[in-house]
């Protein structure tokens, strides 16, 4: 059963009642909210995602509600609660959907300790994963969205999971989060993408989410072998440049993106080293998306 099978009114009903259990790759999140706009936004970008019935296990308990103070009515706000505890500062109510997305990211970043979790995007071709770790503003999501629009399978835009035993990369496939100028850039680059309504004046500026292709959603459980770790950097007007990066430096850089490296210690150290041993590392400077895609297509084709 997917969201579109269920239909918006049933989705709404579940959100208000016992919760909607949304399956995103290896994780299931139980979402509860009485805020009406959330159902419509979910329908826009999650329509092909499986929904589990109420008797299923959910990894994360997500609750979105207004605060119990006067800010419930006066310039209303929204809180995201994980396991009943508010984890962000209250934000304006119209940002409810982005807040839900950030909240689910928070759950993966903070509540998953049985595998390494990197703040990175990953896409796949021929069973091989291209991992794009990056700090915000590096153009990671833009690049990821463009690769997906060009036929790469989306593994994740936000949290790359690396198993502690198997040399496999997975991810919770979820909508790609686009900010500010990237929204128009992706719209211009690919006519076929479906973006959510934009949400203005958030902490990240204007944001919109891109619906993942249904083929990526259908293959959400399929792992990929880590093949390339690429640190992208968008630099206006720069020439496209893919440059090999020495393993030691690649290790030290990707460690900065590992959410649970401190919590896993020694295990995280060796698994990160294993990952870097297996993958080729590069830095990548770009300004033109078309050239960026050509570069990665060539990399995947072994050219």
């Amino acid at each position: 059963m997917t969201l579109i099978d269920l239909g918006e009114s049933t989705v709404q009903e579940r959100l208000r009642g016992e919760g909607l259990i949304l399956k995103t790759g290896p994780f299931a999140a139980r979402i509860r909210t009485r805020i009406p706009v959330v159902a419509a936004a979910l329908m826009q970008v999650y329509q092909d995602f499986p929904v589990l019935d109420a008797s299923a296990f959910a990894d994360f308990e997500c609750h979105l509600r207004r605060p119990l103070t006067f800010r419930r009515w006066h310039r209303p706000q929204v809180l995201f609660l994980a396991d009943g505890r508010s984890v962000f500062k209250p934000l304006p109510l119209h940002q409810a959907f982005p807040v839900l997305e950030w909240g689910m990211n928070w759950c993966v970043a903070n509540q998953v300790h049985d595998r390494l979790v990197f703040h990175a995007a990953a896409v796949e071709r021929n069973g091989k994963a291209l991992i794009l770790p990056a700090p915000p503003e590096s153009g990671k999501s833009t690049l990821c969205a463009a690769l997906v629009a060009s036929g790469w399978r989306l593994i994740t835009d936000e949290s790359v999971l690396f198993d502690l035993r198997l040399d496999e990369v997975t991810g919770p496939v979820r909508p790609v989060s686009l900010k500010n100028a990237s929204i128009d850039v992706i719209n211009d680059f690919a006519g076929n993408v479906m973006l959510s309504d934009v949400c203005r004046d958030t902490l990240k500026g204007t944001v919109a989410h891109m619906r993942p292709p249904s083929s990526s959603v259908d293959r959400a459980d399929e792992p990929a072998t880590p093949a390339w770790v690429v640190f992208p950097e968008y630099r206006a007007g720069a020439a496209t440049l893919l440059k090999p990066l020495a393993a030691g430096s690649a290790f030290m850089q990707i460690v900065k993106s590992a959410f649970n490296y401190p919590a896993l210690g020694r295990r995280a150290f060796h698994r990160t080293a294993d990952l870097i041993d297996q993958a080729d590392a590069y830095t990548f400077v770009y300004s033109r998306l078309e050239e960026a895609i050509e570069t990665f297509d060539a990399l995947a084709a072994g050219r």
Partner: peptide, 14 residues
């Protein structure tokens, strides 16, 4: 008070 809770900007926790 703001220190007690994270800013959602930048990947949720950073």
């Amino acid at each position: 008070v703001t220190n007690s809770r994270t800013d959602p900007a930048g990947g949720g926790v950073r």
